[in-house]
Amino acid sequence: MDYSSSPPGSGPVTERGERTRRKLIRAAETELGEKGFYKASISSITQRAGVAQGTFYLYYRSKEEIFRALVEHMNRGMRHHLSVAIAEAQTRLEAERLGLESFMRFCREHAHLYRIVMEAQFVDPEMHQWFFRTLADGYAKRLEAAQQRGEIRSGDPHAQALALIGIAFFMGQRDWIWEQPPTDAESLATAMAIIESGLSPLSPQK
C-alpha cells in the first residue's frame, strides 16, 4: 500500500524522516499482520524496518499507536480504492458489483491489513467501531442517493449498508482468515445475486 499519505504519528518533518516513518509503518504492517498484536514487538518492527529501536519512539509512542495508525490507513486506502473502482458505474447495482470485486482484490493485496482490522475488535474496540462506522456512514449516504434516484428499493440506508459490508467482509474473512479456497467467479456471482435481490426496486403490485 502507498504510505506517502501519512498515517497518524509524529517524528521529524523532513524527507529523511518521512522515509523512516514509511519503513516503520510497512514493517509494522507485516509484523502485526503475521504475528498478531500480542505476539508482535516493537523490537521486531524496528528490526524489519532496519532502524534503531529508539527511533521508533520519535514517530509512535507505543505499539498501540502504530496499530491504530494501520487501522486508519486501511480505512482511508480502501475507501479510496473503492471510490476509484466504482467511478464509472452507471447504476448503483453496477457499483455494488464493481465494488465487491474491487474489495476482494484489495484485501488479497493487503491481507496483513485485513487481519489487523479484524483483530482491532479485541485490541482497540473503539478503533474497530470507528473503522466500520465511517464505512457504513459514507455507504449509507450513497445508498440513500440511489434510493432517491429510484435505482434501489427504499428502506433504512444504514441497515442496507451494514448488510452489504457484512457480505463483503465475511467473504474476505473466508479467504484470508479462515484460509478457505479463494473466492471464485461463481462465489462472486452468488453474492451479487443476493445483493441484487435485496436492493432491486420492488415491482408494483397488481
Rank of each mutant, 00 (worst) to 15 (best):
L162N: 11
G11S: 10
A69T: 08
M104A: 13
A28Q: 06
R174Q: 12
L70I: 05
P8A: 15
P8N: 11
A49T: 01
R79L: 11
D184W: 03
I116T: 07
G166Q: 03
E29L: 02
G77T: 07
E15W: 02
S102E: 06
I165S: 15
H158Q: 08
W176S: 05
H128K: 04
L82S: 10
H112Q: 09
S200T: 15
T20V: 14
A89M: 04
A49H: 08
E119G: 13
E29K: 12
V123W: 09
E34D: 14
H81N: 05
F106I: 03
D156F: 03
P204F: 01
L70R: 03
V123T: 07
A191L: 04
D124P: 00
Q53R: 15
L162D: 10
A120I: 02
G9Y: 05
W130S: 10
E144W: 04
R105Q: 12
E31Q: 13
A145I: 01
S10Y: 09
M78D: 05
A185Q: 14
P125Y: 09
E88P: 05
G172H: 07
P7R: 06
Y139S: 07
S10N: 09
Y59G: 05
G33A: 09
A40R: 05
S200C: 08
Y3P: 01
L98K: 12
S154I: 00
W176H: 15
F132E: 07
R133M: 01
Y139E: 10
